[in-house]
Amino acid sequence: MQLEVDITGKHFESAAGERHDVLAGVNFSLHAGEVGVFVGPSGCGKSTMLKILAGLDHDYQGKVSRPTAARLGMVFQEPRLLPWRSVEDNIRLAAPHIDEKRLSELFAILELTEHRSHFPGELSLGLARRVALARAFAIEPDFLILDEPLASLDDALAAHLREQIATLVESRSMMTLLVTHNLDDAVYLGDRLFLLSARPARILQEVLIPTPRARRSAAEINHIKADLVRRRLAKI
């Protein structure tokens, strides 16, 4: 199972008819079991790219080949939960055939067990994000897209959720794409990092992280981060 992406261009037209280029050259492939991370400045077009990859936007130049049978799971920047359904019912809507054992397991990993009958309005942002993660994993995806799943969470909570995401990603062989502007998230979770330019976005560089996730020490993560910062500065 493999994702092949070759987006040569994507633009919007403003109401005044002005053309705004968002994506200029995004070319990569991703295999099952790999976590690809897109790192780029805010507003560079990352979310637009994810919409294209998720099949929500077909108006672009280039080609995206996604395995047709691949089940897609996605965690949006905002949790996008239905406020009129409980946590459990939100998950069951996306994954109607999930068995109780798997659901309980997901709730346990994401520490949601006591919240399963709560409504989204009763949850904090951190909890709602975890429900969105549970929903994405409940469908047992072959292709998982994570759009800044840790944005606007405090450092401690983000670090905790990052570990939970790592546990879930390790539990299943799938193609995972993470978009973030946080280098900690990128280096902690990614196997391959794609550094994006400012808008219109293009891939400036691809960085491989050969050490398996479980064996990455804090020193190594810091070393890779420092290297990334150097590379980004060199490209400016």
Partner: peptide, 24 residues
């Protein structure tokens, strides 16, 4: 519209999406 997108990404069938996402 963001909930429409969610339903589309998770391939929720149209009938179910109308009943559980749109109608409420």
């Amino acid at each position: 519209r963001s909930l429409d997108e969610m339903a589309s990404v998770f391939a929720i069938p149209r009938g179910r999406a109308f009943r559980h996402v749109i109608l409420p």
